[in-house]
Design a protein around this nucleic acid. Structure first.
Lengths: 214, 214
DNA sequence: ACAATGTGTGAGCATTTGCTCATATGTCTT
DNA sequence: AAGACATATGAGCAAATGCTCACACATTGT
C-alpha cells in the first residue's frame, strides 16, 4: 500500500503522535483530531491510512506487542542444554527487558486498549509466549504434555501479570531490580518441581512446617 | 446524606445499572444517560447523588475493591501457628475466592477504571493486601524487615497479576482450578525460601542442573 | 391540613467526537 | 511538459455525551 516513501513517514508520525497524546493526556484526550494535529498532518490524511480510530489503535498496539513477542521468542530459541534455573532466568529477563524498554508507552497503550476490543491481541501475545516457553522447557519435562501446558500457562500468567502490576503501581520502576530477582527465585523454585517430582504430588509433605515460632 | 430509605435504593439501582451497562456494552457504551435509563431513574436523579460520571465510577470501583480487600484481610487474621505452605494456600485461596465471585463484574469495572485516574484505588488495594500478607508471614521470617517487604510485594504482585491475566484471557474460568493449584505450588516453593535460607544466597547452587537430557 | 424538605423528572443546551468530501498539492512516468 | 496517480488538506456535518435547571412529586413533622 505505501508506494512513495513519505506515506510511510506519515504513518510513523501518526503512530508517534498517538503515543505522545496518550502519554500527555491519557485515554480521555485521545481523539483523532488531536492525533493528527500532533503528528503535523491533517485529519483527512489520518483517515486515508486508517479506516477509523479503533483500527489505528489496534495497529499500534499490535505492533508493540509484536516487537515484545519477537524479542522473547528470539531469546528463547537459544537454550542448548540449559539448567532449569537458567531457563527461569532467561524468560524472566527476556520478558522484563522487552517490557522495561518503554514502560510509559506500554502503560499508555494498555490503558488505551481497554476502550476497544483487543482481547484477541492479548490472547495472541499470551499464546506466543506460551509456545516459546514450552519450547524452552519441553525437553526437561518427563510427564504428560497437558501437565506441561498447565505449568507453562501458569508461569507465563504469573510473570506477565506480576510485571504488569509492578509497572502500573511503580511508574519509576524503582522496585524493578528487586522484583526481577524475586521473580527469578520464585520461577526457579517452581520449575524445580519439574525435575524432582510429578505435579500431582502434594508438596505439603515434602516441606516441613518451617514456622519459626517467636 | 441518605435521609429516607428510597434514596439508598436509588443509589443501589444506579450502581447495579452501571455494572449491567458495562457488562452488556463495554466501556464505550457507558454513558450517564444509559445508566439512568437502565436504573429506571431520571438523569437528573443520577446527578443528584454523584457530581459526575467519574465520581460514580470511582465510588463503584472503590466499593468493590473494598469488599475484596476486606475478605482477604479477614482470612489473613486467623493464622495461629500455620506452616508456610498453609499460609501460601490461605492467601491464594482468599484472593482468588474474593475475585472469582464475579469475574465478569471485576473485568468490567477494571476496563472502565482505565478511562479515569484510579491508580490510587489500585495502589490502596495493593497496600492493603501487602499489610495483610505481611502480618501472615511476619513471625516466620528471621531476616531484615525490608527483605520481608520485598518478598511480600513480589508475592502479592504475582498472585494478583497472575489472577488478572487468567480472568482476562479465560472468561469462562475454565482453567481456574488448575491455575489455583499451580499458584499454590509456586507460592509454597517460593515461601519455603523464607525458612531455609537468606534471600541473598544464590539458589542456583542449591538446586542441581535438573535438566533431563532427552 | 399544611408547609418544609427530601426526592425525582426530562427536555434541552453546549460541547465534543469521529469522520466525509470536494479540492489542492506533490511525485512519477513518458 | 503534461497527464496520471499518490498523497495531503481542513471546513464542516451528524451524532453522541455530560450535564443543568426549572419544576413536580413524595414524605415527614406539627
Amino acid at each position: 500500500m505505501p508506494i512513495q516513501a513519505r506515506s510511510q513517514a506519515t504513518i510513523e508520525a501518526i503512530f508517534e503522535a498517538t503515543i505522545q497524546v496518550l502519554l500527555q493526556g491519557g485515554a480521555r484526550a485521545l481523539t483523532t483530531n488531536r492525533i493528527a494535529e500532533k503528528a503535523g498532518v491533517s485529519i483527512g490524511t489520518l483517515y486515508q491510512y486508517f479506516p477509523g480510530k479503533e483500527a489505528l489503535l489496534y495497529a499500534l498496539v499490535g505492533r508493540h506487542l509484536d516487537k515484545a513477542g519477537e524479542a522473547v521468542e528470539r531469546a528463547c530459541r537459544v537454550h542448548g542444554g540449559m539448567s532449569l534455573a537458567d531457563c527461569a532466568d532467561l524468560f524472566v529477563d527476556a520478558y522484563i527487558d522487552a517490557k522495561a524498554g518503554d514502560v510509559a508507552v506500554s502503560r499508555a497503550l494498555y490503558h488505551a486498549s481497554t476502550e476497544l476490543d483487543m482481547q484477541d491481541l492479548g490472547a495472541a501475545m499470551l499464546a506466543r509466549l506460551h509456545q516459546a516457553v514450552r519450547g524452552l522447557l519441553e525437553h526437561a519435562h518427563g510427564g504428560q504434555p497437558e501437565t506441561l501446558d498447565t505449568i507453562v500457562f501458569s508461569w507465563v500468567a504469573v510473570v506477565t501479570g506480576g510485571t504488569r502490576v509492578l509497572f502500573e503501581q511503580d511508574g519509576t520502576i524503582e522496585r524493578l531490580p528487586a522484583f526481577r530477582a524475586q521473580l527469578k527465585l520464585m520461577s526457579r523454585a517452581y520449575l524445580d518441581i519439574l525435575g524432582t517430582s510429578d505435579m500431582r504430588t502434594d508438596h505439603t509433605r515434602n516441606g516441613e512446617c518451617y514456622l519459626a515460632k517467636t
